[in-house]
Design a protein around this nucleic acid. Structure first.
Lengths: 233, 233
DNA sequence: TTTAAGAGTTGAACGCGTTCAAAATAGCTC
DNA sequence: GAGCTATTTTGAACGCGTTCAACTCTTAAA
């Protein structure tokens, strides 16, 4: 997303050195405390070098997040293979697996969410430019819904991945700011949320709920539609 | 919140001059573009003076927000006097009134929400230190629920102000990032959301929905409980 | 082997939010 | 008034993220 393909072998090494140094420093000292000068020094390059590969400090966090997401795929795959039960169970398992994987970098993730849910901010998880990451995530949710054996209303189904992805982001957001012991608050919310979601989906097919469902779908479409906003940096 | 009472008459004038200058510059140039040096200069004081009254640039936005909330009370009162109808109507009217009032400062509000929903951040609307502002807001929602003639389940009722406040924050968040013409996307979401909320509340009393309601309440309590996190600056 | 074009790297410099020691001023007591 | 304390004001300085002109190195064509 940020740059063209590296040309020489050395440059890709430098890029990695910078990313690794940043990740380590973010973990040890925290995002705010680790300066770009620190990172460059730890990577053994000049201050400006980091900016040759990453346009901003924030973007390094995004790069870390992207790499994490890629690394996470096989782990999720395993988690999904085991939990082939109800929607409630597998939804919980999927998000749980992510949280466990992210656990060592909880503080780093906080920096990502600092930019909030502003779709106009290029470094937000909601940004148009980050659609690829979202799509990968959402594909899991789609698969999960398809395999749970629940009969989902035709009009609701295409929106479910987005909704579940949003639910996931909410849980992650709670998690990174959750200072309760072992983040048990998040665990509880995840369990309850998964139950509620699956209950709602069971109900969603009943004729009685049709007007409510229609309204909800229209709301979802409105919120989703027209996130093409763009503001500079 | 940030400082003790001003002692001299002059100081309260200076404080106002700084706040007014900041508000004007934020509106004209935007939050990021207006520097503290600009603000101080426009207020006719030295750069450091602003920091004698406000601990940070962000905190000036919060101060603006606080003042706005106070100024808004009579306006809301009027809006509520007119719309004494169903919950759906009055909920929509209440939030609509706020958006209209905030309209000239939409860009300024965006800066407030930049700090996101992190309850540990002292400048977030969710912060413990900003409970007073929240309480004022929530009192309106409480009144609104009480006067709508709906029979609300006893266990749900105490949580409704919080939930409606969150709904309001969601709408505001959408609004400040909504680049659609006249923010019509937000209008639509507000209308649909109000309808959905009121429909859900009508259903909430039915015996059938009891398990779902119980789960939802527990979720709400978990999310609310233990927001006593604190991190420096 | 020379050389021109690009890729990669450097570190000083810029602008910003913020801090702080020092100066100016206001409020008060005698 | 004079003197003293606490409040208010100042502007230079600090550290940060970021930019940029200049430099070195790599690649490949002649």
């Amino acid at each position: 997303m940020f740059k063209t393909e590296p040309v020489t072998k050395a440059s890709v090494v430098t890029e990695r050195k910078i990313l690794d140094a940043a990740l380590e420093l973010f973990r040890i000292k925290g995002f705010e405390e680790a300066t770009m000068r620190d990172i460059a020094a730890a990577a053994g390059v000049a201050t400006g070098a980091a900016y040759y590969y990453y346009p901003s400090k924030d973007s390094i966090v995004l790069a870390i997040y992207q790499r994490s997401c890629a690394e996470m795929q096989p782990i999720i795959e395993k988690a999904m293979a085991n939990a082939t039960g109800t929607l409630e169970v597998s939804l919980k398992a999927l998000i749980q697996a992510k949280l466990e994987y992210f656990a060592p970098y909880r503080g780093v993730l906080r920096a990502l969410l600092k930019n909030g849910a502003d779709p106009a901010h290029p470094l937000s998880p909601f940004a148009e430019g980050n659609r690829p990451i979202r799509e990968v995530d959402m594909a899991w949710f789609r698969k999960l819904v398809n395999n749970c054996g629940l009969r989902i209303p035709r009009d609701l189904e295409p929106h479910l991945p987005d909704v579940l992805w949003l639910f996931q982001m909410g849980v992650i957001y709670l998690w990174v700011t959750d200072e309760s012991h072992g983040q048990q608050r998040t665990s509880r919310v995840l369990a309850l949320g998964s139950k509620i979601v699956s209950t709602l989906l069971k109900i969603a097919g009943l004729p009685l709920t049709r007007p409510l469902r229609k309204a909800a779908i229209e709301l979802i479409e409105t919120v989703k539609g027209g996130q093409g906003g763009h503001r500079d940096i």
